[in-house]
Design a protein around this nucleic acid. Structure first.
Lengths: 210, 210
DNA sequence: TAGATTGTTAATCGATTAACAATC
DNA sequence: TAGATTGTTAATCGATTAACAATC
């Protein structure tokens, strides 16, 4: 499906395309041209056509793109329809908020299990899952191989937990801890959600010109 | 302090520099060269020197950079030492997790107040703050002007809450809702934390080559 | 058919990397 | 002093934008 290497800039735009197309579909829009989509997303029509051409030909001359169809194509490109699975490590405040509020299934993921070490949390039911003790992680993953580990443990436990996830064969780590995880050449992908980096960017932007 | 326009790519690296320098300082490292810093961050020495040169001259030939000094300079550039203030909108699971777990003060922010509409939440004390009713937002902001609004309300309330924040004169919005906020030409800065976009990027990366 | 819009090739722009004189 | 390393200028690389033939 993919032609040559796809740049990081393009990859980062794919979820935005998906989100906008979802909104358009919900709003009942059937077709859209690259220039109209670009206008609503703050991109040029050229860029959109260039981006999409990395993956195939989804439009039609003189017509544009069918919204529903393009949305489905992008979902495929993003791997949303592959039935990925995830386990969550660290069912504290943030972990719990993710479990109970974030819709994993809307991104094509099934959250299979959650782990923690804290006795007050182990055994508690959250979002339909009973939190397991973290020392059963390897055992669990051996029986239920999993694509992604969601890392919401405290900073101090982050690297060792990441190592255990990698050793158990996950393909990716969704990292909410504020550290840069070390992950060897094993091909594990790490996606960081660094809250502080985000807030500091905003801090810079509102301070500019001072 | 700033020379000409600073590109977005550079701005996004500043918090990473800050984080790495903090770690180095904690580890007792006193000086570091651009090539050593680059190695540990996965950047080239050239890029680091080029980035820093947007803001001034912080190094010394033959020596490199003093870690403590460079960290402080970057904190200044990021506006961390300006004493920014924030209010939080939406004290549900995610909002509460942020209040109780995220260290606003480490990014130079003081979280001043939190608001919600839900009767079970209004009046509850979280992280030392008593949650106020959202219909007192304007009144509060008039008396206590605030730099940033942290938006952790449900999707349906997001845009109207953003409009109210902007009308009350905030400089920035830290947006955790999964929508692209509309904000006119008023110069308000919006920084998005789109969980789903992040997970979908990871989904793509672990699916690659399928 | 005429108008609209694609996918792609070429041109431009900006960001990263390399090179090097200056100097601690 | 000699070695190391900066800040900056020049070269390269990659991403974005523009142009246009193809065609629905």
């Amino acid at each position: 499906m993919r032609k040559g290497r796809v740049s990081d800039a393009v990859i980062r735009r794919l979820p935005r395309y998906f989100r906008h197309l979802t909104d358009l579909e919900l709003a009942g829009v059937v077709r859209i041209s690259s220039s109209a989509l670009g206008q609503s997303m703050g991109l040029t029509a050229s860029q959109i056509r260039q981006d999409l051409s990395c993956f195939g030909e989804f439009g039609q001359q003189g017509y544009g793109y069918n919204v529903e169809n393009l949305r489905r194509e992008i979902a495929d490109i993003l791997g949303m329809r592959q039935g990925h699975t995830a386990v969550l490590l660290g069912a504290g405040n943030l972990g719990r908020a993710l479990m109970e509020n974030f819709h994993f299934e809307r991104s094509g993921f099934t959250l299979q299990a959650a782990f923690d070490v804290c006795p007050e949390v182990v055994g508690v039911k959250m979002a339909g899952l009973t939190v397991r003790h973290a020392n059963t992680l390897e055992e669990y993953l051996q029986e239920h191989p999993c694509d992604v580990g969601v890392l919401t443990v405290p900073r101090s436990a982050a690297q060792s937990m990441a190592d255990r996830l990698i050793a158990s064969g996950v393909k990716g780590i969704w990292n909410f801890t504020n550290i840069e995880l070390q992950h060897g050449a094993g091909g594990v992908r790490v996606e960081n959600v660094h809250f502080a980096d985000s807030l500091l960017t905003l801090s810079y932007l509102i301070s500019e010109g001072v």
